[in-house]
């Protein structure tokens, strides 16, 4: 059974980030033999003076494949983890959704999209979670993180939002690789041009510093643009971080 685990607002200015908390949870679930976990995605939410975020207002989400009987133990474990490990002054929230058991996934996705451009209250988040049969809980502080946690799950399920946590590493510090070689990386599902031009397997891609994939159409996509390097061998280059800010 595939579940989405989404967390928000676990950090303060001096603590480790919410992304690291998500990584620790995913590692522990795997170590306990409860299931296997996917990559983690970061989802940007609304930046507005009325929202009490720490510094960037982003939620983190990952999928886990767990056995039917493990759902409740997972929720219990993650809840306890957030209570113990979240930073002082944070307002952590947890959402655990089972996409296959949700009749109205679109409502959760729509909530996620709204949370990128609207101030939403905790009551609305709890009401929606209850109606959709999604676990939503707060684990300290004001609990405001439930809004971002629910939104993060919806945005992950949309398949079209966010950047993956971490960057692509290869066995050696390659300066460029062919498209079919990039596709060998376990986290790269697709290599795609931002302008929509078709790529060939043998096309060369210049690798920028710390290349990163984004979530598009449910896949981890390495976006490339026409090469500016002056190297006539390479037709493409990976996007700069500045260009990935929009995802």
């Amino acid at each position: 059974m595939r579940i989405a685990i989404s967390i928000d607002d676990t950090d303060n200015l001096e603590s480790r980030g919410t992304g690291e908390i998500a990584s620790l949870i995913a590692e522990e679930l795997q170590q306990r033999g409860w299931g296997s976990c996917s990559y983690i995605t970061r989802h940007q939410l609304y930046v507005h003076p009325d929202i009490p975020y720490t510094s960037h207002n982003s939620a983190m989400c990952f999928y886990a494949e767990v056995g039917e009987g493990w759902l409740e133990p997972v929720i219990e474990y993650v809840s306890g983890f957030l209570e113990k490990e979240s930073a002082p002054g944070s307002d952590p929230g947890l959402c655990v959704a089972v996409p296959a058991k949700m009749a109205a996934r679109n409502e959760l996705i729509a909530f996620g999209r709204r949370a990128k451009g609207e101030v939403i209250g905790m009551d609305e988040a709890y009401d929606l979670a209850r109606r959709l049969g999604v676990h939503l809980s707060q684990h300290g502080g004001t609990g405001q993180g439930v809004i971002g946690a629910l939104a993060g799950a919806g945005l992950r399920m949309s398949g079209n939002d966010g950047r993956l946590k971490g960057f692509l590493e290869f066995g050696q510090p390659y300066r460029m690789l062919r498209v079919d070689e990039l596709l060998q990386h376990p986290v790269v599902d697709v290599v795609k041009s931002v302008t929509g031009e078709a790529l060939k397997d043998e096309d060369l891609v210049v690798l920028g510093e710390k290349p990163k994939t984004v979530l598009l159409e449910g896949e981890s996509v390495l976006l490339v643009a026409a090469s500016q390097s002056g190297n006539c061998e390479a037709r493409w280059q990976t996007l700069h971080r500045k260009q990935l800010k929009a995802y």
Partner: peptide, 10 residues
């Protein structure tokens, strides 16, 4: 420096 996932420029 912020954590990797929150860095937005090279």
């Amino acid at each position: 420096a912020d954590v990797e996932e929150e860095q937005v420029v090279e």
